[in-house]
């Protein structure tokens, strides 16, 4: 934690060990790397109190949560897409 925030560090700056080559958010604690829903559940622990109720979903099996993670990751760019910012 830095000033109460989780630091976001570019992957390129990791030199001590190799991060897994997986298309996901990666949460690093010491030399342990967490990905997908596992990473999110750990990040959520540090989030504001009003996000804490969301932690209840992480009682579901990781495999199921990862399917949900992949689906959101795949589609998030197309949600709320406005036609006004479309370059023509």
């Amino acid at each position: 934690m830095v000033n109460g925030h989780l630091p976001i560090i570019p992957e390129s700056s990791f030199s001590e060990f190799t991060l897994p080559d997986i298309d996901s958010i990666k949460y690093v604690v010491g030399k342990e790397v967490f990905v997908k829903s596992d990473a999110l559940s750990r990040i959520l622990v540090h989030s504001h109190w009003y996000f804490q109720p969301l932690r209840i979903v992480f009682f579901l099996p990781t495999r199921l949560l990862d399917i949900g993670y992949d689906w959101v990751a795949k589609n998030r760019l197309f949600w709320g897409k406005s036609v006004d910012d479309c370059a023509i």
């Binding site: 589609n75 197309f78 897409k81 036609v83 479309c86 023509i88």
Partner: peptide
């Protein structure tokens, strides 16, 4: 296609 969004333009540019 994920989405096909009609654009509010009055013509077929390009």
């Amino acid at each position: 296609a994920k989405r096909v969004l009609p654009l509010p333009v009055g013509g077929a540019f390009h």
